[in-house]
């Protein structure tokens, strides 16, 4: 039986499910983007928030699966039932290769992942005869199984919501499992873990591949929403955005990356409509977050609640504000 944490996630998903009931296509499409990029940010956070590795190459897995699906469907007419597993497989395969980066740590890991990420961008950009170069691949068909086709935005919205919810629940199980605990142990002290019989390399490698698989899944969801893909999908900026979302929302949490996604996507899609310097704004959000809120929105909320609880306790003692009961921390 699912317990409280899982029920909370299902409840949030149910709330999100009501968006199409009161909002127009613009907001439904924005919500899809929020969910898909939130999933990408969550995949980044498996490494960042749990294993302590900051990866800046996740756009590569995202784009790899998106391109695979697009090329198979558009150029070779392969049906979705085959194209989707193939996309996931290619993204995961890439993660198996890029996983060598877990041999490095700290800033080296960051630099290596940046460089690896640029390989994929460079290939999508320069291998024009296969990837379409700057123009990318357009006219990806609607998702379809046999004659059954999903053409409406709202229908696809529910597909995305269900997949993301499933992913999130699986992710939750993973980070609470012994495997997830091992990752957090490695983040805390690798030397101690080694002396207890662990191989940091093996666990981090598997975590890297799982994370790459999740990013590939986000890529598949993305391609059937966007229905075209170009090198911008593989660009460093996407990897940066995913990391920013995770940090902005709060690393090591499940809702955090999605909260970060809400903020960034609203900035990008809504604010940019009347304020042209979206990138400057994003850079500033990045700087301010790192300097002043390294634990993200969830971190801010938690410390605010802790402060309020302390204050409530002192006023309680004086007896002036009897209704100000501190909320119990979960």
């Amino acid at each position: 039986m699912p317990e409280r944490g899982a029920l909370t996630l299902i409840f949030v998903a149910a709330l999100v499910a009501t968006v199409p009931l009161f909002a127009g296509d613009f907001w439904v499409s924005l919500t899809i983007k929020i969910l898909v990029l939130g999933l990408l940010a969550l995949s980044v956070d498996l490494l960042l928030g749990h294993a302590g590795l900051l990866s800046l190459c996740h756009a590569a897995f995202f784009a790899m699966s998106a391109y695979t699906v697009a090329i198979l469907q558009v150029r070779y007419g392969v049906p979705m039932l085959i194209a989707v597993p193939a996309g996931l497989a290619m993204g995961t395969l890439l993660a198996l290769v890029f996983g060598v980066s877990v041999r490095t740590r700290g800033v080296y890991f960051i630099l290596v992942t940046i460089a690896l990420g640029f390989i994929v961008w460079g290939v999508t950009y320069r291998w024009a005869s296969f990837t379409g170069g700057d123009n990318g691949i357009t006219n990806v068909p609607y998702p379809a199984i046999g004659d059954f086709q999903i053409t409406s935005m709202t229908a696809y919205f529910y597909v995305v919501l269900l997949v993301v919810l499933g992913c999130v629940l699986a992710y939750r199980t993973l980070v609470r499992s012994p495997f997830g605990l091992v990752l957090r142990g490695l983040k805390s002290s690798e030397s101690r873990m080694r002396s207890l019989g662990y191989s940091p390399l093996r666990h981090l490698y598997v975590a890297f591949v799982l994370s790459g698989f999740m990013a590939s899944l986000a890529g598949v969801l993305y391609i059937y929403f966007n229905r075209f893909v170009n090198p911008a999908t593989a660009h460093f900026h996407i990897s940066v955005e995913a990391v920013l979302m995770a940090i902005l929302g709060g690393t090591g949490t499940i809702l955090g990356p999605f909260l970060g996604s809400v903020v960034i996507m609203v900035l990008r899609n809504w604010v940019s409509g009347f304020f042209p310097y979206y990138m400057t704004l994003m850079g500033l959000v990045f700087i301010v977050t790192v300097l002043f809120a390294p634990n993200g929105i969830i971190g801010l909320v938690n410390s605010w609640r802790a402060r309020r609880a302390r204050r409530a306790k002192t006023t309680d003692a004086v007896g002036t504000e009897p209704e100000a009961q501190p909320r119990p921390q979960p």
Partner: peptide
């Protein structure tokens, strides 16, 4: 069981 992924460690 340090590789176990489907069950809470608790």
């Amino acid at each position: 069981r340090k590789w176990m992924m489907h069950k809470p460690f608790a």
